[in-house]
């Protein structure tokens, strides 16, 4: 088996999920310059909602991909409502407050969602029923499962759709204008509040899909799963240059591949001293290094502070 190729494939799959989540961070940041700490928790809610739907329906004889589709159709509106609610309650009143205030509020939302999820779904890890075919395909000495193929395809389709939405539609133009300069966009007749809300809607829908896919892939979830995922997706967004859609996609894939290669080889390189226990440390370290050395991303230009 070709270990390198295998890790790259696994990395791309994981990375495409990061990319879906990173898009949510980068879109919100691009428009209101806020790190939406709660975004990872929206993904978590998406995953757990879809799990609940799956569990209900499995007992009635549903199975396979149709079940995933049904569950994601429930998760998407749930997450959209959640995203809109978060924006309305916790962020909109603070749009003009000193910078620290929305950050603290965002942390509050993140923790609140975790605890609400713990109250609903409990604190233990929940396991997904085996509903998907275990079909695997061989490519060039590596294995790719059907689930992985579906994840890659759905991520690709969603990202293409988002690209069209932002680049080719009236709404997309208004979004880009608002990201450039909210005040001017407002003067030009763009309803800024509506655009910001739309950003949350799109980001949350992607989060719902990401959550469902993660559930289907790892078959396990709990109320804290959004924390690390959110942090990694944020890293991906920064890696690609925060505020840039293409950057978030590229950053997600890149981070997924680096993480998998790192986890695959780190143990070997350090003779087992630093094993997979530290793979999260590795992710944080990446984040810190990126923030310190390339805060405007690998592709982005160094920004100039407005004086």
């Amino acid at each position: 088996m070709d270990i390198f190729l295998q890790q790259v494939i696994n990395g791309l799959v994981q990375g495409s999920i990061y990319a879906l989540v990173a898009l949510g961070y980068t879109m919100v940041y691009g428009i209101i310059e806020l790190v939406n700490f709660a975004h990872g928790e929206v993904v978590m809610v998406g995953a757990l909602v879809s799990l609940s739907v799956i569990e209900r329906l499995v007992s009635r004889g549903y199975t396979g991909w149709p079940l995933i589709v049904i569950s994601v159709l429930v998760a998407i509106p749930t997450c959209i409502a959640l995203g809109l609610g978060i924006e309305r309650v916790a962020y909109r009143p603070l749009r003009r407050a000193p910078r620290l205030a929305p950050l603290i509020s965002a942390i509050g939302v993140s923790i609140a969602l975790q605890q609400i999820a713990a109250l609903i779904w409990g604190r233990n890890y929940l396991h997904y029923p085996d509903i998907l075919p275990k079909t695997q395909y061989l490519i060039g000495g590596a294995v790719i499962s059907q689930v992985q193929v579906v994840i890659l395809l759905s991520a690709a389709v969603l990202m293409a759709a988002l690209w069209v939405l932002v680049q080719r539609t009236r709404l997309g133009r208004a979004m880009r204008a608002t990201a450039q300069n909210p005040a001017v966009a407002g003067l030009m007749g763009v309803d800024v509040n509506r655009i910001i809300a739309t950003t949350f809607v799109v980001g949350s829908a992607l989060a719902a899909v990401a959550g469902t896919l993660i559930g289907a892939y790892y078959q396990v979830g709990n109320h804290t799963m959004g924390f690390l995922l959110g942090l990694k997706a944020f890293t991906a967004a920064v890696l690609g240059g925060i505020g840039s859609l293409g950057g978030a996609m590229a950053g997600g894939l890149l981070l997924g591949v680096i993480e998998n290669l790192g986890a695959g080889y780190m143990g070997k390189l350090t003779d087992g001293a630093v094993g997979s226990n530290y793979s999260d440390v590795f992710a944080f370290l990446m984040l810190v290094l990126v923030l310190i050395f390339r805060p405007s991303g690998l592709l982005g230009e160094r920004g100039v502070e407005k004086v």
């Binding site: 603070l94 509020s105 942390i107 509050g108 923790i111 713990a118 109250l119």
Partner: peptide, 17 residues
């Protein structure tokens, strides 16, 4: 334990707003 943490989190949001 969850309720307690939830209360803290809501307090953070409410105080900021």
């Amino acid at each position: 334990a969850s309720l307690r943490m939830l209360l803290f989190a809501v307090a953070l949001i409410a105080v900021m707003i």
